[in-house]
Computed example of a mutant assay.
Amino acid sequence: MPLLRVHLDSDPATARRVLHLHREGGVHHESREAAREQVWRQGRTPAGDPVFVGITNGRRNVQLLYDVEVYSDTGP
């Protein structure tokens, strides 16, 4: 199944918290659900849970990065 990379705008404090949770084996449920909603808004159907893959290096404009498997027969 294809992967869709999702970029979510965030602030540096939240990005650090999400990264820390991920490293400790946890999940930031709010950002994961936001990634899932963004996939739906793009007209695709998620095939699984969003997987956190990292954050961007921006000082002010930080983004959370998620990969989401999507069904290939949906979307544009």
Rank of each mutant, 00 (worst) to 15 (best):
P12S: 00
P76I: 03
P50I: 03
R5Y: 00
P2G: 06
L4P: 00
S31F: 05
F52H: 11
R59S: 11
V27P: 02
V39L: 09
G43P: 08
E69F: 01
Q63A: 06
R41Q: 11
L65S: 02
D11W: 02
L8Y: 00
R23C: 02
V6Y: 02
T56K: 08
W40N: 07
G26K: 12
V6P: 06
L64V: 02
I55Y: 03
V27K: 14
A13G: 00
V39I: 08
E24T: 03
A15T: 02
Q63T: 00
E69N: 01
R44G: 12
E37H: 02
D9Q: 04
R44A: 14
D49A: 13
A13D: 14
E24I: 00
H20G: 06
A35N: 06
R32Q: 15
A15I: 04
L3D: 12
N61D: 15
Q38P: 00
S10G: 08
A34S: 04
L8N: 04
P46H: 01
H22V: 02
R44N: 11
N57C: 14
V70S: 03
G25Q: 14
V39S: 05
S72H: 13
P76K: 05
G26E: 11
P12N: 02
L4T: 05
R5L: 15
H28P: 12
D67K: 08
A34F: 01
Y71D: 13
G25I: 05
